[in-house]
C-alpha cells in the first residue's frame, strides 16, 4: 500500500490529471473499444454483426430478428400488426407465441388452400428451443413464412 497522503485541498496542478484522464478515457472507452469490437465482429461474425438478414432469391428481405410486418392473409402475422392490446415491448417482436401462430392456421388455410394439418406441422416444427430452458414456446414469423414460400412455391407464386 502507498504511504504518502497529499494535502487535502486541490492544488492547481491537480486539474491536469482530470482533464487528461477525461480525454484519454473517452478515446479509449468511447472510440478505440467499439472500433476493435467492430473489427473483430465484421471479421469473425459478419452475418450476425450486420443484423442476421434473411434472403429470398438472393436479396435481403429483412432480419430474422425484426418483425417483417406481414399483413396478407396468406402469411402468418406478427403480434404488432394486430391490435395494441397484444403489442410487444419492442414493437418489432419477430416472434409469436405458439398458440397465436396456431390460431392463424384457419385463415392461412382459407387463403392458400393448404391443408390445416400441413400448416400445423410446419408451425410445430418451427417452435424454438426456448422451452428447454423454461420459456414459453414461440415461433419466428419470418422463418415460418419463408418456409411456406420455399415449401409451397405454388401457393406463394408471387414471392418464390
Amino acid at each position: 500500500m502507498t504511504t504518502k497522503v497529499e494535502p487535502q485541498r486541490p492544488r492547481p496542478a491537480s486539474y491536469r490529471p482530470i482533464v487528461v484522464l477525461a480525454v484519454l478515457s473517452m478515446l479509449v472507452c468511447g472510440l478505440l473499444f467499439p472500433l476493435v469490437v467492430t473489427g473483430i465482429a465484421q471479421g469473425a461474425f459478419p452475418y450476425q454483426a450486420n443484423g442476421s438478414q434473411a434472403t429470398l432469391n438472393g436479396r435481403s428481405v429483412g432480419s430474422y430478428l425484426i418483425d417483417n410486418n406481414f399483413t396478407l392473409p396468406a402469411f402468418f402475422h406478427g403480434r404488432n400488426e394486430s391490435n395494441p392490446a397484444t403489442a410487444s415491448a419492442s414493437g418489432v417482436d419477430p416472434d409469436v407465441p405458439l398458440s397465436y401462430a396456431l390460431s392463424q392456421v384457419p385463415r392461412i388455410h382459407n387463403a392458400t388452400g393448404l391443408p390445416e394439418a400441413t400448416l400445423i406441422a410446419i408451425v410445430t416444427s418451427h417452435v424454438q428451443w426456448t422451452i428447454w430452458i423454461g420459456g414459453d414456446p414461440y415461433v419466428n414469423v419470418l422463418r415460418l413464412n419463408l418456409a411456406l414460400i420455399g415449401d409451397y412455391p405454388a401457393a406463394y407464386s408471387g414471392y418464390g
Partner: peptide
C-alpha cells in the same frame, strides 16, 4: 461483446439498412 455478436447482436458502423420486406414494403434495419 464478441460472444454477443456471435449470438446475433449486430456490431457495425455501416449505417441503417433499408430492405424490401417479403410483402414488398420498405423496412429499415
Amino acid at each position: 461483446a464478441v460472444v454477443m455478436v456471435a449470438l446475433g447482436v449486430p456490431q457495425t458502423l455501416g449505417g441503417y439498412i433499408t430492405v424490401k420486406t417479403v410483402e414488398g414494403a420498405t423496412q429499415r434495419l
